[in-house]
């Protein structure tokens, strides 16, 4: 399981529509619109390939999107290290 977050920038005019459509994609959750044009997305993908596919899809298939900006990627396995190093 891979968990990633990204910021999707969209034109304020169509942002609501974009949010609706994004929410319809399986494994994708939106977390509100911020500062007018930024949508925060959480993606939970089975594999890195699926994540790439999803990102590409969002980037190219959607109208009104100005850009996508990945902010975080991690897999379950790496998580082990994080917990150990933080304790």
């Amino acid at each position: 399981m891979i968990i990633a977050s990204m910021i999707v920038k969209a034109l304020p005019e169509n942002i609501d529509e974009v949010v609706l459509k994004l929410n319809n994609i399986p494994n994708v959750t939106t977390y509100g619109v911020h500062k007018e044009e930024n949508i925060i997305l959480l993606i939970e993908a089975d594999s890195e390939d699926q994540l790439k596919d999803l990102s590409r899809y969002i980037n190219s298939e959607f109208e009104g999107i100005l850009g996508t900006y990945p902010t975080f990627v991690a897999s379950d396995e790496e998580m082990e290290d994080v917990i150990k190093s933080s304790n």
Binding site: F72, E78, D81, V82, S85, S86
Partner: peptide, 10 residues
């Protein structure tokens, strides 16, 4: 990658 996590923890 580790650095990134550290930043995150912060």
């Amino acid at each position: 990658m580790k650095k990134f996590y550290l930043a995150l923890l912060i």
